[in-house]
Design a binder for these strands. Structure first.
Length: 1050
RNA sequence: GGGCCUUUAGCUCAGCUGGUUAGAGCGCGCCUCUGAUAAGGGCGAGGUCUCAGGUUCGAGUCCUGAAAGGCCCA
């Protein structure tokens, strides 16, 4: 006996029960233990941060991470899945700062770094339970008990080892570069962090006069969108090859004139309708070296400044074509300063305010000083114009402070030195979708810039570089032991975080003075990118484990990780081992809400995963995420869309399963009893589709094609339920057991068991629920769960393309037959005499005969046949097929087509249908047209109800004989009896006594078909005479007849 | 400003190397079937395949350009 299965499914409840079973039997670990000693399949978990609530996008990533390890496990691989947590970094610090109400770094220092970091350590796992709960509920099988944690000493020590390795290869260096800098957080931001905060902002753009030293009546007209950088001005840049002009204009006071230098192309946009006189015209290079009067002299330049320099990056489609240069506040400016040996004026303090030397605005946040600077320039007659400009400007992604571009000393990894290796190793990676490889990721590598590693913060992996306070000798430390040796103290118990590591000092080997650790931490992306090494505490231990699990076979994250984790893994792996870090990577698109809007807290359209899980279950949610669109594409998400999956796919499958179990139990059927089932055509067809499905799904999994591994199953289940099962119902209903019934059970059983395996990686709950009932329940030898089972192999001998094609044709003809019935307004319950079909070739007409029974039954007609071309066709049409003829005759095709259409269709059709060639001539050239190159279509004569699609026609003979009418009435009668049975809550197998009273014509019909009726309704007695004096079960009128019935269990 | 992606029915998506009349599901309207089904079947409305050029006998598909949206980067 199978466990009875209700046709109603409570997905949530079913899944929770399965979860309990998995937990009780520890199926996850069993599935790994199961494969011990087998080939390793290596998966890396990209560590999330557990200091925020997990959302739908995390579910997306996690279910995609889950699917391939499950598949590979079933294929016999050993797949350990070690979880991981990203615990360091600014996001964690920000949370703690918020909690403490801090707004700047000084408050943290005052509070105490040790205490602050302790809170960070706790906060990093604030939502760990939420993460664990969700991970379990969506059946992401990952080992969280052994998860690596980036703040652990062992992890940090491995990261140090990597850094030391880079140090020894001269890949770690301290540089002085202009970086995007958050004055509030007091730290430079990585490119990745900066990119999180771009948005439109309005700033004052100003045009400023810079009078020439040699000719004070002439000024350079200089443009900038950052007035606060003007006190740091040291030069003006012009483009060498752009045309510049000196124009003369009336001064706005009305008196006198002034001369201004600017790019010629900007005259109109700057002066508009105002009349200006062009005094002279010249190339930009002629401006080189021209000296101008400085705007401000707060800081004395230590090198010659205040002159025009040339630079190619000067643009002339906005501004004036003359660009103000402040090397401390722009990457381009800095480069120019280096090239031109210009001074660097640092007018701003690390907290974003002007330094005391900038007397007027000292202590004021620079952006807030803009209006005052503008006012000052105006008062001094140097301001030409100010115009608000809206442009995209970066803001700090955490605290929303406008970023400043700011020259800072910081640490870099010289990734650009290994650019060729980075590019070469990328070529070995399979990217899904493929375009990322040479697109987004490839371009990023090709334009590689050094990795800005340093962070001037508190909670993170400290940069293990010690520097002598006196001679500035630097050393990089690669292990705790090394540090112990340096200091002569056993530092095994040392917490490798600030402030404890900062307290470790030792004597400089060069000069004997004290070595202190440099203040920086490292970028958290370096933490997570180190996980292949650091999760094993390699090379300090676990050498074997590390080597067996490097590189990864499979990783998967959202596309925003291109420059995040994907890059940090790839870069570290390349610099460390010159090897690719991952072989296959699936890159997921973003999640949008049901209307295609990005989910965000501010929009309030964030869907909670639990909302969906509680209602529709994890399987449906997973299935939706897998099948909605290609993985790399963004996908919409809403509870309704998931509900759709449940309704159209899960429930169809479940009902098929429930049907099988119900009838198999009724018949006491068990698998494997009959040696060799005598399969019908329909069975063989389903098995051909089934084994084709196994083949296709397997191929898809091998190619990391999630859509290909899921969508075809939907199509199969639809065929299984709405064709195979519908067509086979009577085989299961009939009483007794015979070979045909056995074949039907065997086929359906095989399909359901196979489906449970094919669905195991994608819908792990329903798959196991079915498998355990269908297989484990009967076979004590079987694995306890589908997830411990082997992936199915398809049977080549079961494949049958011709049979599949034939059945497709049958379905099409049935569909046309239904269409014709619909037109005739004759319901399907009324039998008709005959259906005739027209098809486009000889093979297809054989199909009509072969599947005559099926067609008759499905369309409720007494006979089917091919439409006779000779006697029943009214007109023929020739359709020259462009695919065949076009490819064969190329540009002659249009004329040949015309010639074919000009033939007498009837005569030509006759020849083609006999398999003869057509002879035509075009421009004196003769051609033989083959029968397969022209499609013959016919139209049926009158007297039929016809529906057609292309060459396919279904024609119904709609004249009704008395016999047919009687049979129709009987069918109506039977249906009402069945309805009454259902309403009386009888069991499917209950036998009944049936009493009826009705009008004469119906009564006659019932008498004629008495045996049929008793058989259909499981009546042991059919009585039209002895009407009882009690309330009837049903009274009805139809087709002009009246009917009353009583029934009773026999 | 650069790179990449997307644009096909009201919605979600197919459309293989160019080839007959561009399809499916959902939704909508009408009809129908049913002792597995919250289902199934049929018919109908709904498309200038974002636009403009080009290549070709033939373009949703290939090429060029443009537009809109998205992501990433400046």
């Amino acid at each position: 006996m199978f466990k009875p299965v209700s046709s109603k499914l409570n997905a949530n409840q079913m899944e929770l029960e399965v979860l309990d079973y998995w937990k009780k039997e520890d199926i996850f670990h069993a599935s790994i233990k199961n494969r011990e000693g087998k080939t390793e399949y290596v998966f890396y978990e990209g560590p999330p941060t557990a200091n925020g609530m997990p959302g739908v996008h995390h579910v997306l990533a996690r279910v995609f991470k889950d699917i391939f390890p499950r598949y590979r496990t079933m294929q016999g691989y050993h797949v350990i899945r070690r979880g991981g947590w990203d615990t360091h970094g600014l996001p964690v610090e920000i949370e703690v700062e918020k909690k403490l109400g801090f707004t700047n770094k000084q408050q943290i220092e005052d509070y105490g770094i040790a205490e602050f970091n302790q809170l960070c350590r706790e906060s990093a796992f604030k939502y760990i339970q939420e993460w664990e709960k969700l991970t379990e509920r969506i059946a992401f099988w990952v080992d969280l008990d052994t998860a690596y944690i980036t703040y652990k000493n062992s992890y940090i020590e491995s990261v140090w080892w990597i850094l030391k390795n880079f140090w020894e290869k001269d890949l770690l260096y301290q540089g002085f570069k202009v970086v995007p800098y958050c004055p509030r957080c007091g730290t430079p931001l990585s490119d990745h962090e900066v990119s999180l905060g771009y948005r439109d902002a309005t700033d004052p753009s100003v045009y400023v006069r810079m009078p020439l030293v040699d000719d004070p009546s002439t000024s350079l007209l200089v443009w900038t969108t950052t007035p606060w950088t003007l006190p740091g001005n040291v030069a003006i840049a012009a483009h060498p090859n752009v045309d510049y002009v000196t124009v003369e204009r009336k001064e706005s006071s009305g008196e006198g004139t002034e001369k201004l230098i600017l790019a010629k192309s900007q005259i109109e946009s700057i002066f508009g309708d105002e009349e200006v006189k062009i005094v002279s015209e010249f190339k930009g290079k002629q401006l080189k070296g021209k000296r101008y009067q400085p705007l401000y002299t707060f800081l004395p330049p230590d090198k010659p400044a205040y002159r025009v320099v040339l630079a190619d990056y000067v643009i002339t489609n906005e501004g004036s074509g003359l660009v103000h240069q402040a090397p401390a506040f722009g990457a381009d400016d800095m480069q120019t300063a280096i090239d031109e040996d210009l001074p660097i004026l640092m007018t701003v303090a690390p907290n974003g305010t002007f330094i005391p030397e900038v007397k007027q605005w000292a202590g004021r946040f620079v952006k807030d000083a803009d209006p005052f600077i503008i006012e000052d320039l105006n008062n001094r007659g140097l301001l030409f114009r100010t115009v608000p400009i809206t442009h995209t400007y970066p803001f700090c992604w955490r605290c929303d402070t406008p970023l400043l571009y700011y020259a800072r000393p910081t640490w870099y990894i010289r990734t650009s030195a290994k650019k060729d290796d980075l590019v070469a190793n990328n070529q070995k990676v399979n990217w899904y979708p493929n375009h990322i490889k040479d697109g987004r990721f490839g371009n990023w590598l090709a334009n590689n810039i050094d990795w800005a590693l340093g962070r001037e913060r508190y909670w993170g992996t400290p940069l293990p570089v010690w520097e002598c306070e006196s001679c500035h000798h630097q050393e990089c430390i690669g292990s705790v032991q090394e540090l112990s040796e340096k200091t002569g103290k056993d530092l095994k118990g040392l917490d490798l975080h600030r402030p404890y590591v900062d307290e470790v000092e030792y004597a400089c080997p060069k000069c004997g003075e004290t070595m202190h650790r440099v203040p920086e931490l490292i970028d958290v992306w370096f933490d997570s990118g180190s996980m292949p090494v650091a999760q094993w505490h390699y090379p300090f231990e676990n050498e074997q484990e590390f080597k067996e699990h490097y590189p990864a076979d499979y990783i998967c994250e959202a596309v925003d990780q291109t420059r995040g984790w994907f890059y940090s893994l790839h870069a570290i792996s390349t610099l460390l081992f010159d090897q690719q870090c991952f072989k296959n990577v699936v890159c997921l698109g973003l999640i949008l809400d049901g209307d295609g809007q990005k989910m965000s807290k501010t929009r309030g359209n964030v869907v909670s995963p639990w909302e969906v899980l509680d209602k529709h279950g994890a399987d449906a949610m997973r299935w939706y995420l897998y099948t909605a669109s290609p993985p790399g594409q963004e996908r919409r998400f809403s509870a309704d869309l998931v509900n759709e999956v449940l309704r159209s796919f899960t429930l169809t499958l479940w009902n098929t399963y429930s049907f099988f179990v119900t009838y198999a139990n009724l018949d006491g059927w068990q698998p494997g009893k009959a040696d060799k089932p005598q399969y019908s055509k329909l069975d063989e067809w389903l098995l051909a589709e089934l084994h084709g499905l196994v083949r296709d799904v397997t191929t898809a999994y091998e190619n990391y094609d999630v859509l290909g591994a899921t969508r075809p199953i939907e199509g199969f289940v639809d065929h299984l339920s709405n064709w195979y099962l519908r067509r086979s119902r009577r085989r299961f209903w009939k009483s007794g057991s015979d070979a045909d019934k056995e074949a039907a059970y065997s086929t359906l059983y095989e399909a359901l068991v196979m489906l449970s395996k094919l669905l195991a990686p994608s819908m792990p709950f329903i798959a196991d629920e079915m498998y355990r009932n269908l297989v484990v329940n009967l076979d004590p030898q079987a694995p306890k769960s589908v997830h411990l089972a082997d992936w199915p192999k398809f049977n080549e001998g079961r494949l049958n393309d011709e049979l599949v094609a034939d059945m497709n044709l049958v379905m099409k003809l049935v569909s046309l037959g239904h269409a014709a019935r619909n037109k005739s307004q004759i319901k399907v319950r009324q039998p008709l005499q005959e259906a005739a079909f027209s098809v486009s070739n000889i093979h297809d007409s054989a199909v009509i005969h072969e599947y005559a029974d099926l067609l008759q039954d499905e369309l409720n007609v007494k006979s089917v046949r091919a439409l006779s071309a000779a006697s029943e066709a009214a007109a023929y049409e020739l359709v020259p097929l462009p695919k065949q003829l076009g490819q064969k005759y190329k540009d002659q095709f249009p004329l040949i087509r015309k010639a074919i259409l000009a033939l007498d269709p009837e005569k030509a059709a006759g020849m083609l249908l006999k398999g003869e060639n057509l002879k035509i001539s075009v421009d004196g050239e003769d051609f033989e047209i083959l029968p397969e190159e022209v499609e013959v279509r016919m139209q049926a004569k009158e007297g039929f109800e016809v529906a057609s699609d292309g060459a396919y026609i279904a024609a119904l003979v709609t004249t009704l004989t008395d016999d047919l009418v009687n049979e129709g009435l009987v069918r109506e009668f039977v249906r009402r009896v069945q309805e009454a049975r259902k309403q009386a809550d009888f069991e499917i197998a209950d036998r009944i006594r049936l009493i009826y009273s009705c009008s004469a014509k119906l009564k006659y019909a019932i008498e004629c078909f008495k045996d049929y009726i008793m058989d259909e309704t499981l009546s042991v007695e059919l009585d039209g005479e002895n009407v009882p004096n009690i309330l009837p079960n049903l009274s009805d009128e139809f087709d002009g007849e009246t009917l009353t019935i009583w029934l009773d269990k026999a």
